[in-house]
């Protein structure tokens, strides 16, 4: 187990995403995680940029925005503490498909995507456990997207 960087006060193991994960993966990933703080209005990621990190939100609020030609941008979801930004970093080509903007002061831990993929590739058991934690996030977002398509508040 590698000790966390001295500057970091956030620990991956404390994030809801890693809750209940056995095998010590969050402790080992701590070394390749960077703590970041965003002020209101700061962009975390921009659509089209390389998805080079896995972002775990610890505090604050992040708006996921779609940029539409000739129309105001639309916020389709907000993420708060305990949530993760997405999985674009896992799928080739690793590219962000949305903008993410801090709408409150936000603190994150961000794991280098190349190193995370390498870790999961070289330790398939860890990779499997990791995906078991990531898949519910994907499934929940799919469920919510379906419900949004049904327009719950439609008239």
């Amino acid at each position: 187990m590698t000790a966390p960087p001295p500057a970091s006060v956030l620990r991956l193991a404390d994030h809801k995403f890693f809750e209940g994960m056995i095998g010590g993966l969050p402790e080992r990933l701590q070394a390749v995680a960077t703590e970041r703080a965003y002020s209101v209005g700061d962009m975390l990621v921009r659509e089209g940029d390389v998805a080079d990190r896995f972002i775990l939100v610890f505090e604050g609020k992040v708006a996921l925005e779609i940029v539409l030609p000739d129309r105001p941008r639309v916020t389709i979801q907000t993420l708060g503490g305990g949530e993760v930004l997405g999985w674009s970093w896992l799928l080739p080509p690793p590219q962000w498909w949305l903008d993410a903007r801090a709408v409150k002061r936000t603190r994150t831990l961000e794991i280098n995507a190349a190193k995370l993929r390498a870790t999961l590739d070289s330790h398939p058991e860890d990779g499997y456990r990791f995906l078991l934690h990531l898949f519910p996030v994907v499934a929940q977002r799919l469920d919510h997207t379906r419900l949004q398509l049904m327009d719950l508040h439609g008239r």
Partner: peptide, 23 residues
């Protein structure tokens, strides 16, 4: 409060009410 979609003028939550239940 949460809304299904919003523009940049909204600093509140965006998402379905069901998404707030787990918390």
């Amino acid at each position: 409060t949460t809304v299904d979609a919003a523009g940049r003028e909204w600093y509140g939550d965006v998402g379905l009410v069901t998404a707030r239940v787990p918390d």
